[in-house]
């Protein structure tokens, strides 16, 4: 026999029969925004890697004059 909580959870997830519209809408909202955040994180890593490489190359050629 299922507990009261499970039944309430089922009812919540069913969304009064509209689950197939409500949850994909929420999923789209969070997935697209997560993609926006992830794109920034990936780009930050790439830029930092580039800059580190640039710094390393400069360091071997000539010591940087401190400004």
């Amino acid at each position: 026999m299922r507990s009261v909580e499970t039944l309430r959870m089922d009812k919540f997830l069913a969304m009064g029969g509209f689950a197939q519209y409500v949850w994909p809408a929420y999923a789209a909202f969070f997935v697209i925004l997560a993609g926006d955040v992830l794109a920034t994180v990936v780009r930050r890593r790439r830029v930092l890697r580039e800059l580190r490489g640039r710094l390393a190359r400069q360091g071997t050629r000539r010591p940087r004059v401190s400004a």
Partner: peptide, 20 residues
């Protein structure tokens, strides 16, 4: 998603407005 009661006309489908 939890506290607001279902809409009289649209049932639970109206909950999409909170993201739309």
């Amino acid at each position: 998603l939890v506290l607001a009661p279902p809409d009289a006309l649209q049932g639970d489908a109206f909950r999409i407005i909170f993201v739309h």
